[in-house]
Design a protein around this nucleic acid. Structure first.
Lengths: 253, 253
DNA sequence: GAAAATGTTGCAGGTATTTGCATAAGATGT
DNA sequence: ACATCTTATGCAAATACCTGCAACATTTTC
């Protein structure tokens, strides 16, 4: 393993776990702890991480320490999103075609994709595309159209037409509101059009959301519960909040 | 085995495995490691891969380099690019449709666009799109297709079709090689296709390049000098290097 | 077609990097 | 304070790198 590869691996671990231990890295990669220490030193010198006794921390983790209580709520949501992302990733196999939307949960997922996965990701979300682009083995198809500044995704008739011509294995949607009676709902007309088209094209529909959006309602209807194949939240499938959805025939991870 | 073949083989290996080792390449191809090293050096100079101690890594794998390297050698080129960018920006007026490619000069330009400008920018270059996206008043149209990891632009038949349906006021191209006799030349087949299509669609063709690329040649022909409306470098129009181009009917800024 | 210029390759040598180990110093937790 | 774990430093072996050079192949020039 080349030095640069090793350092890339360390960075990836930092991005996923927010911390690394010198000892575990050493046994993971099979090099001496001295080498790991020297890597951490270099990466720390160039500002990629923060070296501490016994290992290293990510910059974002460092911020947590110094920021006030106000932000800890956001950090908690961050951890939830990482858990959701890891569940979603377990669905992916080499060679799959996966259509994804935008949203912070999706981007978290994109960031955590294992380096070995060689699948094709299709998206119109610029932040997601940037993450996919940095991945060593993933093919990326960009859905073009007019770029919406707030949502940072391409929206329009052209994007819809393009998506209609696809038959991806999965469609991964970050959702803003879901309840048993109305299904998925949202607040932006164009985004709803896009999501409906994505759902109609895909073989399986996977929805990601943090649990606080469960049983909430937005003004515009996207689709009913019956269209959802898999629902992923940070909660376990046997959590009381999730049981009604399981009963309604949704597979909950 | 010819040098070109050998280098093509190395690129192929990089594309498949994301990394190569000097030692294994040497025994694969049966040439000395010195030769391999020289090949890797050349390929690294032309940006095809990233050379590291012991071998090389694919560009997409790198990712570390991005946040850190404050290459002091490159600072000069950076200044030149800023100057080029500012000249290009002087061409833009509110309401224009501007088609742009990728490349570091273009991105520098995107970063410098004045906050007041409200034009529409069309591009398939992800780094450029990210810059346009952050601008308060600019509309962005994304050209979708398969994303090329090396060049970070979308390439393919779909992108070409899309561009053919446009008639932008300007097409802004970053170019890699230009000389009086052969015009614009480049090294990647797909990129050449794209550039040709962009040139054919646009009302005016603007080329940006640092002066060191003037009077250089690459293997594939893009278009003749006569297709270029405006050529922008960091040199003044009356600089000796530029005079032959002015004489050939190109407007030099 | 011969001569000259240029390009390519392998090798010798000296230099630089990388890595693991040993030892001593420092940090941590009970 | 003590035992334990982590770190810094110097050192040595292995490996990789760079430079110049000679041999050979290819192209250009006359």
């Amino acid at each position: 393993m080349l030095k640069r590869e090793r350092q890339a691996y360390i960075i990836q671990q930092i991005n996923v776990h927010n911390k690394v231990l010198s000892a575990s890295l050493s046994s993971d990669i099979n090099v001496s702890e001295d080498t790991i220490r020297r890597d951490l030193q270099e990466l720390s010198d160039t500002g990629k991480l923060i070296k501490v006794h016994g290992g290293a921390l990510s910059h974002s983790f460092d911020k947590i320490k110094y920021n006030s209580v106000k932000d800890t709520g956001r950090v908690y949501a961050q951890q939830q999103k990482k858990l959701i992302a890891s569940k979603a990733i377990s669905l992916f196999k080499d060679g799959m075609f996966i259509l994804t939307g935008g949203g912070t949960t999706i981007i978290e997922m994109a960031r955590m994709l294992p380096a070995g996965l060689s699948a094709t990701f299709i998206s119109g979300s610029i932040p997601a595309i940037v993450e996919y682009m940095h991945h060593p083995a993933i093919e990326v198809i960009v859905i073009g159209d007019k770029l919406s500044k707030n949502s940072k995704i391409t929206l329009g008739a052209d994007a819809l037409t393009r998506i209609k011509n696809l038959k991806p294995d999965f469609c991964i949607l970050g959702i803003n509101a879901i309840d048993l009676e109305h299904g998925i709902t949202d607040s932006d007309w164009d985004v709803v059009q896009l999501k409906q088209t994505m759902i109609a094209s895909s073989q399986k529909v996977v929805c990601l959301t943090i649990s606080e959006k469960i049983n909430t309602l937005q003004p515009i209807h996207v689709c009913g519960i019956d269209k959802i194949d898999i629902l992923i939240t940070e909660l376990a499938p046997d959590h009381p909040t999730m049981l009604p959805y399981v009963a309604a025939g949704v597979k909950v991870l």
